[in-house]
Computed example of a mutant assay.
Amino acid sequence: MNFRDIVPAAAWQDLVARGRRRSYRRGAHVLRQGESAGSVIALTEGIVKVIQVAENGETLTLTLRGPGEVLGEMGAILDRRRSATVKAVSACVGHVLPAHAFRGYLDRHRLSSEVYRLAVDRMQENERLRADFVRLAPPARIARILAHLTKEIGRPVEDGVLVELGMPREELAAMAAMSRSSAVPVLSGLQAAGVLTLGRGHVIVRDPARLDIAAGGSGEPASGGV
């Protein structure tokens, strides 16, 4: 579920219309962790990844977001610096709105409570996922991450659901708190079982129901906010 899913269609269109259209090439920084939250971006095309950088310089990809998402909303609402970096996984189009204008937009459409609820839901989902990683076996961890990404950014295609990852296998493995050497056999096993097909920078999930079963049955998503 993203921002567009929780607001009326007219409210989403109003947000897009008020923003300044901007294109981002693949690999470009859309938002940077630590910078002032002076604007929000309504994403209308493409996929982005949300990354957090630790004090020791290590990076972790938290999640991927797709069209219909608003990026940087909590920083703008709370007047805090960005808590994560957002990079374009594919060519993207966003509509940039100043933070003060976004706050006025929320008041005008009476959407503040919905935005907070979405943020809290994602935080709780993330906490559940991290707790599950303590008890889940490695195969279920990678399946859980893939199940989340399928629901978050999956796009139906003729032979399944296309998930544009735009990241190397070791980065996907790190999302599941695994090493690349541990994740690759799991991915190969899921492919051999006909659950998914691996491609360069993407996967095609052929059987989402079986992927949910491999993930422990629920496919609870991970989350990251900016």
Score class of each variant (00 low, 15 high):
Leu106Thr: 07
Val40Tyr: 00
Ala10Leu: 14
Glu114Gln: 11
Val93Thr: 11
Gly19Pro: 06
Met175Thr: 01
Thr150Met: 10
Val120Arg: 01
Ala9Gly: 15
Leu198Glu: 10
Gln124Glu: 14
Ile77Phe: 05
Gly66Asn: 05
Ile153His: 04
Pro168Thr: 08
Ala137Thr: 12
His100Gln: 12
Gly166Tyr: 05
Pro185Thr: 07
Ala91Glu: 12
Gly38Val: 00
Ala119His: 03
Asp79Thr: 11
Arg117Glu: 12
Arg26His: 03
Glu58Phe: 14
Leu111Gly: 02
Ala91Arg: 12
Ile153Val: 15
Arg169Pro: 06
Asp212Cys: 12
Gly189Cys: 13
Ala10Tyr: 08
Ser39Lys: 08
Glu69Met: 07
Ser39Phe: 08
Arg155Val: 14
Ser223Lys: 06
Pro168Gly: 07
Leu31Val: 03
Arg144Asn: 11
Arg155His: 13
Ile145Lys: 00
Ala99Tyr: 09
Ile47Met: 07
Gly154Tyr: 10
Ile142Asn: 06
Arg32Leu: 02
Met123Arg: 09
Ala42Ile: 00
Pro8Gln: 06
Gly34Asp: 11
Lys49Met: 07
Pro67Trp: 05
His29Lys: 10
Leu31His: 02
Ala37Ile: 09
Pro208Asn: 12
Gly72His: 09
Ser36Val: 15
Gly66Pro: 05
Gly216Trp: 08
Gly27His: 01
Cys92Arg: 06
Gly38Met: 00
Ile204Asn: 04
Tyr24Leu: 07
Asp132Cys: 10
Val120Ser: 08
Asp132Tyr: 09
Leu97Met: 14
Val53Glu: 09
Gln13Gly: 08
Arg20Lys: 15
Leu165Cys: 01
Ile145Asn: 04
Ile153Met: 06
Phe3Leu: 10
Leu190Asp: 05
Gly75Tyr: 03
Arg4Ala: 10
Val89Glu: 05
Gln13Glu: 13
Pro138Tyr: 08
Leu111Asn: 01
Ala137Pro: 07
Met178His: 04
Ala143Cys: 11
Val134Ile: 12
Pro221Leu: 09
Asn2Tyr: 01
Gln191Val: 14
Arg4Pro: 07
Glu152Gln: 15
Glu220Asn: 13
Phe133Ile: 07
Val86Trp: 02
Arg180Asn: 14
Tyr24His: 10
Arg4Trp: 06
Ser112Arg: 01
Asp207Thr: 10
Gly224Trp: 02
Leu211Ile: 09
Gln52Pro: 05
Ala119Met: 02
Ala174Ser: 11
